[in-house]
Design a protein around this nucleic acid. Structure first.
Length: 718
DNA sequence: GAGCACTGC
């Protein structure tokens, strides 16, 4: 609940300046710190000044409000506030659209939406002609979708120069860069409403972060006046360790020597009822310690925090396109993140932030901004999306990104798309690819769905795709101690008939379906109710889209498994069409696997898998995997037993792969794949953009990979 | 006995 009245919002003092700048320029960067009111006021200012006469105003956000915090009518904080201030019912003049929920009407003139939803709209209306203004809010968070949108906006303002205004809100540290991207457009600075935060740096890095956090927390508790403490850790493990040690040390403090304390862990896999504890105020004369992952950096705002302890690390997922493997690494945070964390101490009154690193380290070691997601992800989905837009004036490899992904990452995406028939051997999108782009799924799953439709197991594949979309949010996480207790009470959940995790996902959902989607059943089986409901929603949405594509009813009904397909052969075959490039072959005498994709690697089945071994203790000869993830070792996560002949068609395509053709021309040289307008961005100073590889190097790599593949294929055929 | 940070169409 905000206590700042409208008149106090800093952004309003700049109204004339903002309107004048927007009038004269197609794109404006707005640097507005927390509390400036930019999310709620920019749209209203432009509405007041007539910008809604020719269309509506879109305000995009990278995410909706965390599901645990809100009632069903507050998907965006800003959204509710704007409708109140304009004194109109939500969903009329002011509406919102998120996945599964469109609360807009013909009357809507200001529309809040996630950037993913705007991308979907753009698919059916590439010029986004209904909008006169598009505000990309929180663009500094640089989500994958925001980056795609930034590129599309740059293009769109050329096409709609006369009737479109774009506003991009950003952080202090990278506003210049965004401005350069948009041909040096003006930057407006709007101050925030945060209270001052005193920053204390350590003189050196501690040997143990947990110890250092522990000591700092106790110092605060014994020496500083009241106010809650927020501590940023990298993951559940460290959080649990710190929480238990902090509890122990605080108990040992002399009674009456300081106020009471409560300690709350906070991370995404915590059940909602434990997450919301941090929103209820503490009892009187009691200090709260919140030991949290990054979730408290942007997603959840905890009121009452006065002290922040920031060790300077975060766990980050990144994709390596040359191996097709994800890794989850602990990395240093960026300056933007460090400032965001510090700001969490100044929301209600002046605060303090203790950084467990030196000011020199802040200045010299930390990157200005976090490496954008687009440089850390597999791009198959985004590339397929862009291809389906039919931007005839641009080559996909020249698409103008604020931070271009590496050539390797683009090439990897093209190869993946080719192998699942989404693009042809010249790199043009196929009709299959167009259909795949309509589905809100990663391309490999879209492909599986379409194949399953041909094989008569569409319904099952819809379930698997939906379950995989929610997967990580399904199981309620157990702390280590609870895990030990559970060992003797084995799960009643089906085991995938030993065929692997995909099949288990299918069986779980079918069982839930038989209970008529009973929430008690979820709890009994240690499944997150929210996660399972999400699966149901995704499945429903996929059904609707599939039926729309097919222009008629399809067999999408969830049903008990049919007698004639006891071993799920059709489904597992269909999976091979989507995941043919993610096939692994077991080693001769042990349970390690080697992958048979572009680059062969030694990997293990993830310990959480339900894949079963045979009488001799061996796993199946071939499996397909959903993803490779390197944690302590390289693992295949979510595997499914398959048979070699099912994958042959994909292998035949691998053999004929000519990647230079896929990327738009056999003679394409290294220079040609630079983005358009490269001149504008030569000195973007980010240094994050990975350089494109020389063409000869690429070709020799591909040749070598092909030889290895042919050698393997010879063996496999024996 | 090893382990998944956080979002989203």
């Amino acid at each position: 609940m905000s206590t700042i009245s409208m008149a106090e919002l800093p952004v309003l003092q700049f109204e004339d300046k903002i309107v004048e700048t927007v009038d004269k320029n197609p794109v404006v960067v707005v640097i507005g710190e927390t509390g400036s009111g930019k999310s709620t006021q920019l749209s209203q200012i432009l509405h007041r000044r007539g910008y809604t006469k020719s269309g509506c105003i879109a305000v995009t956000q990278p995410r909706r409000v965390a599901a645990v915090t809100v009632s069903s009518t507050e998907r965006f904080v800003a959204n509710r506030r704007v409708s109140e201030e304009l004194n109109v019912p939500l969903g009329d003049e002011v509406g919102y659209a998120i996945r599964f929920e469109d609360r807009t009407s013909e009357k809507t003139i200001i529309k809040y939406l996630t950037d993913g939803v705007l991308l979907r709209e753009s698919l059916s209306n590439p010029e986004l002609s209904q909008y006169s203004v598009i505000i990309l809010d929180e663009a500094h968070e640089r989500s994958l979708n925001t980056d795609v949108l930034l590129g599309l906006m740059k293009r769109l303002i050329k096409l709609r120069a006369s009737n479109l205004k774009v506003l991009v809100t950003s952080a202090t540290l990278d506003g210049e860069k965004v401005s350069r991207f948009f041909s040096d457009c003006p930057i407006l600075n709007v101050p925030g409403k945060l209270f001052p935060v005193e920053i204390h740096h350590s003189s050196e890095r501690p040997k143990s972060y947990i110890d250092a956090c522990l000591n700092k927390a106790l110092d605060i508790h014994t020496q500083e006046p009241e106010g809650d403490v927020l501590i940023f850790m990298t993951g559940q493990d460290d959080i649990e360790k710190l929480v238990s040690r902090l509890e122990e040390r605080i108990q040992r403090l002399e009674e009456g020597s300081c106020m009471d304390a409560v300690i709350y862990p906070l991370h995404g896999s915590l059940p909602p009822e434990l997450q919301i504890r941090v929103f209820s105020p503490p009892p009187p004369n009691c200090r709260r310690f919140i030991v949290s992952t990054n979730i408290a950096e942007t997603s959840l705002t905890v009121d009452g925090v006065v002290y922040v302890i920031d060790p300077g690390f975060v766990k980050q997922r990144q994709y390596n396109p040359s191996t097709g493997m994800y890794s989850l690494d602990v990395v240093q945070i960026s300056k933007v993140q460090a400032n965001q964390r510090a700001g969490r101490a100044g929301r209600t009154r002046p605060g303090k932030c203790y950084r467990l690193y030196s000011s020199v380290a802040y200045k010299d070691d930390l990157l200005d901004a976090t490496i954008p997601e687009i440089q850390r992800s597999s791009l198959a989905g985004s590339i397929l999306y862009l291809k389906s837009l039919d931007l005839s004036d641009i080559n996909i490899l020249k698409f103008d990104f604020l931070d271009p992904p590496s050539f390797e990452a683009l090439e990897d995406a093209l190869k993946q798309l080719y192998l699942i028939d989404a693009i042809d051997d010249k790199g043009s999108i196929t009709s299959l690819g167009r259909t795949m782009a309509e589905l809100p799924l990663e391309p490999s799953l879209s492909r599986t769905l379409l194949e399953a439709n041909e094989c008569g197991c569409l319904s099952q594949s819809l379930t698997v795709a939906a379950m995989l979309s929610a997967e990580t949010t399904l199981l309620i996480s157990q702390s280590k101690s609870a895990d030990k207790k559970r060992k003797h009470t084995p799960s009643n959940l089906p085991d995938g008939s030993g065929l692997g995790d995909h099949i288990q996902f299918l069986q779980i959902f079918e069982l839930w379906h038989e209970t008529d989607y009973n929430t008690g059943w979820c709890k009994e089986n240690n499944l997150q109710v929210r996660g399972m409901k999400f699966v149901k929603d995704v499945r429903k949405q996929l059904c609707q889209i599939i039926q729309k594509i097919a222009k008629g009813p399809m067999d999408v009904k969830t049903s008990k498994r049919r007698r004639e397909d006891q071993d799920y052969r059709s489904l597992r075959k269909a999976l091979c069409s989507g995941y043919g490039n993610q096939l692994a072959e077991r080693m001769l005498r042990h349970n390690g696997y080697k992958t048979l994709g572009f680059k062969s690697q030694l990997v293990q089945v993830h310990p959480s898998s339900v894949l079963r071994t045979d009488e001799e203790g061996m796993f199946p000869n071939y499996v397909i995997y959903h993803e490779l993830i390197a944690t302590t070792r390289p693992y295949m996560r979510n595997v499914c037993a398959v048979e070699m002949p099912w994958v042959r068609p994909v292998f035949a395509k691998l053999q004929n792969l000519n990647v230079s053709k896929l990327s738009g021309g056999a003679n394409q040289s290294h220079e040609e794949v630079q983005p358009e307008n490269a001149d504008v961005r030569k000195d973007d100073g980010g240094g994050n953009a990975a350089p494109a590889q020389p063409a000869e190097d690429r070709d020799s790599k591909i040749l070598a990979a092909r030889e290895r593949y042919l050698a393997r294929r010879g063996q496999a055929n024996k």
